[in-house]
Design a protein around this nucleic acid. Structure first.
Lengths: 347, 347
DNA sequence: TTGTACGCGTTATCAA
DNA sequence: TTGATAACGCGTACAA
């Protein structure tokens, strides 16, 4: 049994308990706990020891009520797939170093839940928000209001175009340029684009890159090779089957995400189309699964971890400087990872 | 421009602002906001309208300082891979319904970070914790202390054996029994076990199931077919290569996780071993990738989403009942999903 | 039906 | 070097 076995097994000890037990004032305890210079070494000793004994730890709730500073970052992501889980890890890493706790919420790709999450986090007085928009979010007024109120916010990956805030984004267009450029180098001429929802900014940016590259190489833009739809494998599967019915059919598919690329691959397999010989394939995200597929699938790799890290970095800079900094936008470069699904010349 | 454009763009409105603006007391505002019966309808009307106008929302920090109730659940998971991301979604779902906010932290499989996360969450006065242990955690004193103090806690999946708390676990042994039983049915006789760290409880439970099934079928237990090691693909890859060097070599591999199964598959591919004809393979978790591999890999499916949901349910029940309920343990059943990698008799 | 006053646990200011 | 006290934003007896 411990020396002074704790009589209050329910209620955590407060600063008052420590003060009472020692017969001194709470202000002295407060100062001792925070290593203030003007406190008697003997007193500090005693306080620290008693705090240890009572297992006293400052109540952060009371603390943030006073300081209006919670030392926590609210993170809202659409889901926790590989990309976002990795990005959150990046945020986590950076935040931990700076002494912040990360509170992660999923909007589940729902506009309503994004709003709920936002309100909840703000009401618990997080110091600010790091956000990636849900795919259902087109109206960003709920964020704009907070921005006007002066709440520190950083957006990443899926960012709002007309939001005056700091952002960390991928050079999506460049990623598409790399992918399509590579396919053209491999000899492909009829390259299809498997897009996501037309409302999704990143989907459009990637499409832009696709179009620009075709133009740059003097290739025609064929409308029927450009598809849009839901952001899931099922849609990609059906769209690919349709593409394969065209005459002449495409000799390559560039999917704006790996999820779509997988759907495409399943369709290609089912039709017995040889990849890459008959149809080459490139995805976007470089999820771990891509290297395990047969054939392994080329993909544009995003620096997910770094995106999270940079977002947190920007965020912490905002907090540490008292003048409100002007919004910054950091653009990160993707890297094409070439695998079997798009290697034609030298296999 | 809005009617009464807000003059205090920085400071969020408080209950005082509403009261002052209306020339009434804060208690009246407080009551009106919370739909108390004994408040003049006209007054309530005015309060609600003014609250709207000032964009007033109760400060949860102050609120939980008073009520000692944060309406939030702290969740600590070792990582955010497919299984845990899904479980967290289950927790999220349940918690949202009950009006709780979920604050998720990753321990990153580190004992130290698990402790840090725990302290941070507790100090921000979450109402309790839902936890899955890091693989590096063998000492659970930090949780036991909180339990003694009366903090509501639910553990799931990776639970501590000697912890007096509610738990949600998978019937790991049964999962292994299903997997190994299936392999035996398919005609396999020399079945290897690819285990994780020997310290990991779930790894041992699965091994138990493996051993029990061999015994039940009168098959010999061959020590050299049982391996242990790190919880990663690389280890599984190397271990599999060693297994393949044995004389006679195994005709099946049961991996205690999909991550290990993938490592095994890579080794099998590299050696040109035909799956399942020469060596059959079954994993554990049923991650989406398993169905995409070539050959597709059989796996024991865990109800990850349900595990999260049930954990949250148990947690909320604890909070809602004032007497401290005795710890419950809910055991969920896994389901074997058979795919190409283990289908021998009828392909 | 409404208002006053106290307390939640802490920091900060000022006085001793 | 230490202590008393106001304040943070809110809920809640108790009084009016």
């Amino acid at each position: 049994m411990p020396p002074h076995s704790r009589s209050h097994s329910a209620r955590p000890a407060t600063i008052k308990d420590v003060a009472r037990e020692l017969g001194i004032s709470i202000s002295t305890v407060s100062r001792a706990m925070r290593d203030f210079p003007d406190v008697n070494p003997a007193t500090r000793q005693a306080v620290l020891q008693m705090a240890e004994q009572l297992d006293y730890q400052p109540n952060q709730v009371a603390l943030s009520l006073v300081t209006k500073h919670a030392h926590s970052i609210g993170v809202i992501v659409p889901n926790l797939d590989y990309f976002f889980a990795t990005a959150v890890r990046g945020i986590d890493e950076m935040a931990l170093e700076a002494g912040y706790t990360v509170l992660t919420c999923q909007s589940n790709e729902s506009y309503g839940r994004e709003i709920t999450n936002t309100q909840r986090l703000v009401n618990t007085r997080v110091d600010g928000l790091i956000v990636s928009l849900s795919s259902a979010t087109s109206n960003v007024d709920h964020f704009r209001r907070l921005l006007l109120r002066g709440l520190p916010m950083v957006f990443f990956d899926r960012v709002g175009t007309d939001l005056e805030a700091s952002k960390v984004v991928l050079d999506n267009k460049d990623g598409a340029v790399q992918a399509v450029g590579h396919l053209i180098e491999q000899g492909c001429r009829r390259i299809a684009f498997l897009g996501g929802p037309a409302s999704l900014f990143i989907s459009n940016q990637r499409q832009e890159g696709y179009l620009a590259t075709l133009r740059a190489h003097g290739l025609p833009i064929i409308e029927e090779l450009i598809t849009h739809g839901e952001f899931d494998r099922e849609h990609a599967y059906r769209a690919t089957l349709q593409l394969l019915d065209l005459q002449p059919r495409p000799d390559a598919i560039f999917a704006m995400s790996d999820r779509l690329a997988v759907g495409a691959l399943l369709a290609l397999r089912e039709r017995g189309v040889r990849v890459p010989e008959e149809v080459a394939l490139v995805g976007f995200n470089d999820e771990p699964v891509m290297s395990l597929l047969t054939p392994s699938v080329s993909s544009v790799a995003q620096p997910a971890f770094d995106m999270g890290k940079v977002a947190a970095q920007l965020f912490i800079e905002m907090l540490n400087s008292d003048q409100s900094l002007p919004p910054q936008t950091v653009v990160l470069k993707p890297t094409l990872v070439v695998r079997e699904s798009s290697l034609l010349r030298r296999g």
